[in-house]
């Protein structure tokens, strides 16, 4: 039965024109970021190496596909969650708006299975978007800018050879996917709470902005500083430390996964208890 509900939800997503619009929007943003990354990349390299130019000669090109991917990776963690939150929350708010939710639940489908399938399909959609984004980012960057060593400034100037840069970037994308998943699930929970699309989008956008601000704020509490959700969102950056703190990454991912589960369960419980009418 659950499989059937999931299949229907997937069908709905694929048939909705806004899904296509959203995907196109993501790739347009990626294109803009790619172009700006190219120009910004030159500036960043000049800045990073300015003091060293008096002492050193450099052989090889640091403005390559790996640096562009790294810069895209840095730029996308605001734009992509925003679009994902709009689309994913729309999966439910459109059902409220069109009153299709009532038609669905008149069928022998439990509220838990219905909303559960929404969370599951939203997760699959998020994974698909990030996967497509990663494939296109790597593909275009390597095709246009070629491969080469990656230079990153994190507690020092770190240089990574091409092969190492690739797996660090790929791992960062993989870890970043969980952050994207968190934002998607939060937006769906907001959709459960607010039902209305505009309200949900506004709250989602505020949530995203606050998360980015909270990321930089130093709490006067070590537990909050370590495990508050906003502090876990950019765990993917740890892959660009010269010595990767794997244990910290695994703990952060586990805690963020628990946040995802908590947010989803909260949404399911609220949905079960609330009236269907908008």
């Amino acid at each position: 039965m659950m499989k059937g509900v999931i299949r229907v939800e997937l069908f709905k997503i694929l048939r909705q024109s806004k899904t296509l619009y959203a995907l196109v929007a993501i790739f347009i943003i990626e294109g803009f970021v790619l172009v700006s990354a190219y120009y910004q990349g030159t500036e960043i390299i000049d800045l990073l190496l300015a003091n060293l130019k008096d002492t050193f000669e450099f052989k090889g090109d640091l403005l390559n596909g790996n640096l562009i991917i790294y810069m895209i990776l840095n730029s996308l963690w605001f734009h992509i969650p925003l679009i994902l939150m709009i689309i994913v929350s729309g999966f439910l708010t459109s059902e409220y708006k069109d009153r299709t939710i009532e038609a669905v639940l008149l069928q022998p489908v439990s509220k838990t299975k219905f909303i559960g399938s929404k969370y599951l399909v939203s997760s699959l959609f998020t994974l698909l978007v990030v996967f497509l984004l990663a494939i296109s980012t790597f593909g275009i960057s390597y095709l246009v800018f070629g491969k080469g060593d990656l230079v990153v400034y994190l507690n020092g100037l770190n240089f990574y050879p091409t092969e190492e840069a690739f797996w660090r970037l790929a791992s960062a994308f993989a870890v970043g996917t969980l952050s994207m998943l968190f934002f998607s699930l939060v937006s769906l929970t907001f959709a459960v709470l607010f039902k209305d699309a505009t309200k949900t989008w506004i709250v989602s956008a505020i949530f995203l902005v606050c998360t980015n601000l909270l990321l930089k704020i130093d709490f006067d509490n070590s537990i909050l500083n370590r495990f508050f959700y906003s502090k876990l969102i950019d765990s993917w950056q740890y892959y660009f430390y010269y010595e990767i703190p794997y244990e910290k990454i695994y703990i952060n991912m586990s805690v963020l996964f628990l946040y995802c589960v908590f947010v989803s369960i909260a949404g399911i419980i609220v949905f079960k208890k609330r009236d269907l009418l908008p």
């Binding site: 800045l47 990073l48 003091n51 060293l52 002492t55 400034y153 994190l154 950019d234 950056q237």
Partner: peptide, 19 residues
């Protein structure tokens, strides 16, 4: 062995937990 100036990076380019 040589003398080299330390690099100075504007804050907007500093990454996660860069001290």
């Amino acid at each position: 062995l040589f003398e080299v100036s330390n690099i100075k990076i504007p804050l907007q380019f500093l990454g996660k937990e860069t001290e």
